[in-house]
Structures are given as structure tokens and as C-alpha cells.
């Protein structure tokens, strides 16, 4: 693996699931500081479960999750946010009775200093200028793309050192997806470590430097993106047909 720095997130032999249904069967995954890593796989393979285990929403059954040198697998989700690891869930869920700005401010709940909260708010508005125009509107009336911006923005509000995005492109029009991906690229360039789960494999691999393919709750294939994108298995399973020219896409 092409190590860029110290491992930010290190997941080892992770098992877990819901109730009695086991989803994760010993997954291993590692994200280096400053990297964008893509986690790919079909429906029901354990992508979201893995993220939820990392963010503390579900308690893993076994294995370990280490973030920035600290074991986080027994910590509550709010403590994990305070440690600097934030998850943006799938489904573009906001608090619809609240304005865009209130939604964003809640993301900075762990930040007690008002000036720092406002600085974070400005940064989010800088990434997503449209949200500044809509700041006083209830989030319930936003379009899908804007909802996704609120969700990602809310995730950035606590100024985490790493963000995990669960299908940021799901159910969005291609142009919107392009915009969101460009912003993710910008966020990463500004120093954020990113782990993103995607169904949109080609786009994800164009953005990420490293990729994992998960199958039946285990990491099936892993490698640098340019290898994965040319890997016959990945191509056959997820990309379908020929692979488009990389430069033309981004």
C-alpha cells in the first residue's frame, strides 16, 4: 500500500451485524491521513454497516477500530465525533423542521466556542455557496442535491480530521453528482481525510487514490484506484462494459 502518512483509521477483523444477522465477517481496512479512500460493493455487502460500526451507531461484535491511535470501537457516537471522526449517512436526512443554518449549527454541537462555530459555518458556505442563500429556509423544502450539501456541511461543522460519506451520489442527477464530487475533492485537498462508500464505482475511483471492494462482509479486492479501475474483476462486477477514459471524466 502506498502509505502517505500515519494510518488515520485502522479497522481489523471487524465482525458485526444487526440482531442475530451477521453482516461483517472480518473486514480489514485502513485509511491513511490525507487520503481519499473508496469503499465499493453491491447492495447488502456490508458497506454501510462498516461505516456505522466506525461511527459508533452499531457496536461491533469483534475486531478492532482504531482512529488516530485510539481504540474507538466501544465509544459512543458523540464521543467519536468529538475525537474527530464524522459520518454522513446515506439518505440525505436533515432535521426538516429547522432552517438550513440550524441544521448546520447542530453539526458543530461539540464546538462550544461561538466564534469557532461561525468560522466553521463560513467555511461550509464557502464550499456550498447555495446554502448561504438558503440559510434561513427550512431544510424540508430543499432539493435532493441541496439536502446532500446540508448533510455533508453538517458533517464538516465540527471540523473533524476525517469524514466518512455514505453514498454521496445516491439518487442525484449526474450534474449534481459532479458538483458534489468536485467539492469532496476540494475538501480533501484542504486537508480532510475521506472514506467514501459508493455505488457509483467509476466516479469514486476517479476521485479516490485507493479503493476497497467489499463482498459478503469481507474485503474482497483492494488496491490503488488506477489498478482497480483496470482490474478485470472490478470491471466485470461493477463497472460493466468498457472503462471510460479517466482524464475525460474529471
Amino acid at each position: 500500500m502506498s502509505a502517505v502518512g500515519a494510518a488515520m483509521l485502522d479497522i481489523k477483523d471487524l465482525t458485526g451485524g444487526y440482531g442475530r444477522v451477521q453482516i461483517l465477517n472480518g473486514a480489514n481496512l485502513s485509511v491513511q491521513r490525507g487520503q481519499i479512500v473508496a469503499l465499493l460493493g453491491g447492495n447488502g455487502t456490508g458497506k454501510s454497516t462498516l461505516l456505522k460500526a466506525a461511527s459508533g451507531l452499531i457496536r461491533p461484535w469483534g475486531g478492532s477500530i482504531t482512529f488516530a491511535g485510539t481504540r474507538i470501537d466501544a465509544m459512543r457516537p458523540d464521543a467519536i465525533v468529538r475525537a474527530g471522526l464524522v459520518q454522513v449517512t446515506q439518505g440525505k436526512e436533515t432535521f426538516p423542521g429547522m432552517t438550513v443554518e440550524e441544521n448546520l449549527l447542530l453539526g458543530a454541537y461539540v464546538v462550544k466556542d461561538r466564534a469557532r462555530r461561525n468560522a466553521a459555518l463560513e467555511r461550509v458556505y464557502d464550499y456550498f455557496p447555495i446554502l448561504r442563500d438558503k440559510r434561513h429556509q427550512p431544510s424540508g423544502g430543499l432539493s435532493g442535491g441541496q439536502l446532500q450539501m446540508v448533510c455533508i456541511g453538517r458533517g464538516l461543522m465540527s471540523s473533524p480530521s476525517m469524514i466518512m460519506l455514505d453514498e454521496p451520489s445516491a439518487a442525484l442527477a449526474p450534474q449534481i453528482v459532479m458538483g458534489i464530487f468536485q467539492t469532496i475533492h476540494r475538501i480533501a485537498r484542504d486537508g480532510m481525510t475521506v472514506l467514501m462508500v459508493e455505488q457509483n464505482v467509476r466516479m469514486a475511483l476517479l476521485l479516490a487514490s485507493y479503493g476497497y471492494v467489499i463482498k459478503d462482509g469481507m474485503i474482497h479486492i483492494e488496491g490503488p484506484s488506477e489498478h482497480l479501475i483496470n482490474d478485470d474483476n472490478v470491471r466485470l462486477s461493477y463497472l460493466g462494459g468498457t472503462v471510460a477514459n479517466r482524464e475525460a471524466k474529471l
Binding site: 451507531l57 457516537p77 458523540d78 465525533v81 447542530l106
Partner: peptide, 24 residues
């Protein structure tokens, strides 16, 4: 208030509230 917003957030969606760093 932030506490009030957090209470409403918890009422609406406990998972998202948790992921926003709120002590649910």
C-alpha cells in the same frame, strides 16, 4: 439555544443527532 436545537434533533432522528456529536 443549542441545547434546545439538540433536544429537537434528538426528537427527530436519534442516529443523526448522535452523528452530529449530540449526547443523545
Amino acid at each position: 439555544t443549542m441545547i434546545g436545537l439538540a433536544m429537537r434533533a434528538v426528537a427527530y432522528n436519534k442516529d443523526i443527532a448522535y452523528l452530529s456529536g449530540i449526547n443523545v
